[in-house]
Amino acid sequence: MSFDQRVIKNGRLSMGLAIIANFLPAIVYSVMYGTFPGIGGILTIWGTVAASYGVSWVVQVIAYHPTMGAAGSYIGWLAGSCGDIRMPAASIAQTMAEVEPGTHEGTVIGTIGVAMSVLVSASIITIFIFIGNAVIPLFPQFITDSFSHIQPALFAAVYIDMMKRDVVHGVISLVVGFALYKVMALVGISTAFITVGVIVATVLIARVMYVSRAKKNA
């Protein structure tokens, strides 16, 4: 069996096992505490996450494939952080070993880089989870209380970071999104559809701006 064939065989085997393990906590917790959301509930949840992240599932996996290769994709997508940890690790490994990306040598060394980065980040996360779990009960009340403000701070900071690339689009989307949210909530439309509505509106605004800018440049 060639190297590539072995990569695919082992990669698909571990991905298959990972998909089963991925659902383990949800299944066990639902059964233990009798909180299974029902088929309808599952479909609503699936629809909501698909509306929110579905584009990333498809486009990211395809877009990173040429750089990550098959083995890199198997390790990288299981461990995550492809953009900010795996790709930089693969590329620095290739530079240090003086191999070209896109060649067989480059793929082998790039995969070594991705694998090393997974071992490092899994160790760091594991260490910090245990430290965090041990020290959180010792935090003063002030700190523990302040964690309830993390979501507005996080989503606002990330939003600012994302809209830097196109400030006009970012501002319009937020204003239109806010109005849409209020109107849809007022009419009594369910949350899952409000999520979809805001995302679709944002993409439509981007499309209108993209087309009109293309026309202006033409």
């Binding site: 989503f155 606002a156 970012g170 999520t195 805001v198 679709v200 944002t202």
Partner: peptide
Amino acid sequence: VMMNSASIGLFAYLLINQIQ
């Protein structure tokens, strides 16, 4: 552009949902 705007839309929703 579409990928970027889809994630902007998601975070717009998450932010709006917090501050609505």
